[in-house]
Amino acid sequence: MREAFRQELKDLKAEVVSIGKVVTDRTRDAVTSLVTGDVDLAETVVAGDEEIDRRTLAVEEHSLEVIATQFPVARDLRLLHSLTYIALHLERMADLAVNIARAAKRTAGRRGPQTLYDLIQAQGNLVYRVLDATCEALETRDVELARKLQDLDEPIDHLYKQFFRELARLHDEEDIEWASSMVLASRYLERIADNAVDIGERIAYLVTGEFEALHSPDEETA
């Protein structure tokens, strides 16, 4: 009985890690579709959201079922509670990736200054690094890595701010709709990384049992 329960916990955790990896791939595809103007790739990101929604909801339902029937406590309870919380974050991150893919569809066929594409790509590369680290920290219960996510997130915020500065240099004749779509995409990337930092705090909690000071995004990016 207890063995089956432990296996269920393992399976649930593996499922959340797996969802995390899918969200990482979707984010990568969304950024690629934006930078290369690949509408088909953007479509697959949008279409894939339903699967993420379904899987994260299943994690929540399954967690509740285990809580109701097995009365988990201590690290088992922290794991179940945290997995539900993490799944919710992943679901939001997937929604943000969809928003980036929608921006890709809106801007496809128009080209703006290359520096802004380069900035988005650079920001994207940093975000993938945060997402990979998040999945690894959850999979291996690595508290140090989980805590490091906040540091990894910082340059992403800087790039978002730099994006604004670059935008200010645009001339009147530039395409405003294109520009605002790109700003939003940069903002979505920054939010994806913030969600990952929150997941990192949750991973630290599930391992240590201590709620650490919660990261609060500064006002400009909130």
């Binding site: 207890r2 406590v73 201590a74 049992g209």
Partner: peptide
Amino acid sequence: LFTSPKDRRTEDYITG
């Protein structure tokens, strides 16, 4: 004690 026990032996006992 039931969410974040400090001692590993407590943790092992209450989680079965």
